Amino acid sequence: MTTEQAQAGTSGKRPDGRRSAAAARRRAREQEIVAATRRLFDERGVRDAQIEDIASAVGINRAIVYRHFSGKEEIFALTLVLYLDELRGELERAADGVDSAPDRLAAIVTAFVDYGVEHPAFVDCAQALMRRTGTELLDEISESALFRLGRGISSCLRQLSAALEHGVATGDFHVTDPALLANTLYASGLGALQLARLGILVDEAAPGVPTVGQISPEQVRHHLVTSALALATHRPA
């Protein structure tokens, strides 16, 4: 055996190849776990998806799940990334080819509402993570997972802020901070989607006398589109 061959056997390409293969297997297992979580979310909802259920769906025990993820919050975060990637695609398709700034913003908000109505687990998952502060998230999930989550959210928000910037450029909108308004629309939209799911509208028939009515997803969609356009076109005093 030559010196070069001996070195390859201890620190050359073969060990690197083994490490690469192990890393690939690890990534594949992580993707499998996240995909199983997504399926459980869609089937049962976020609350009813437990670590044991996720592990069972993949055919492993819960201890192996914790080898790949820091905890349930990290799995939730990466599952939300799957939803966000889909949502970004829906928003892009909605905006594609729409030249009018108001029409483009309305199309994007409509696509957001339609996606949330079709995927209620997305709304639950997003709201569950939004209830935590940035510091808490850093303590509960890895930096790489937090980066992927941030990238998923920002890519969706960028569709909104770009539409707002386009409207400012055309003179249709009067927005001083498109990023702030985009974040506000996203957060308020998640809350309104819960209202659409419940289908219940609480009012007061008389002072101190509550009354309960009904609200449809179509009404929520109309309200969010109308509100977005009103906020974008409002001239600051």
Rank of each mutant, 00 (worst) to 15 (best):
A182F: 02
L224W: 09
P120C: 02
A163P: 09
G59H: 00
G59S: 01
E140K: 12
A179I: 02
S188T: 14
L185I: 06
V202P: 13
A94Y: 02
A187V: 09
E52F: 03
N61E: 14
A187T: 06
R148W: 10
E73F: 05
D124L: 02
H222E: 04
E52P: 12
G213M: 09
S161L: 00
E92T: 03
L40E: 07
C125I: 00
D172W: 10
V113N: 12
F69D: 03
G189I: 01
D203E: 12
Q127N: 08
A145W: 09
G89S: 00
A232D: 15
D53E: 13
A126N: 11
V65W: 02
D139T: 07
Y115V: 01
L157F: 03
D103Q: 04
T10G: 12
A63V: 11
A182G: 11
T110D: 15
D139Y: 11
V212E: 13
Q50H: 05
A24E: 09
Y66P: 08
E90M: 03
I75L: 09
R93I: 00
Q214T: 10
T170R: 12
Q219G: 11
A205F: 15
M130D: 15
R26I: 06
L80P: 14
T184F: 04
R19W: 05
L164N: 09
E204N: 10
D48E: 13
V65G: 10
G171V: 01
L40V: 13
R151F: 06
G134F: 05
T176K: 15
A106S: 11
A36T: 04
L80H: 09
I200C: 11
I75Q: 01
A21E: 14
E136Y: 03
L82S: 08
A163R: 07
A8Y: 01
R235S: 13
T133S: 12
S56G: 14
A187M: 01
G17M: 05
R19V: 00
T135Y: 14
I33T: 04
V202A: 15
G45H: 08
L138C: 08
V123I: 04
A192E: 05
Y83M: 05
H119C: 00
G191F: 03
S11P: 02
R158Y: 09
S154Y: 07
V34Y: 05
T184W: 01
S216Y: 01
R67Q: 12
S56H: 15
I64R: 09
T3I: 12
A101L: 00
A128T: 07
G12H: 10
T110E: 15
V202K: 09
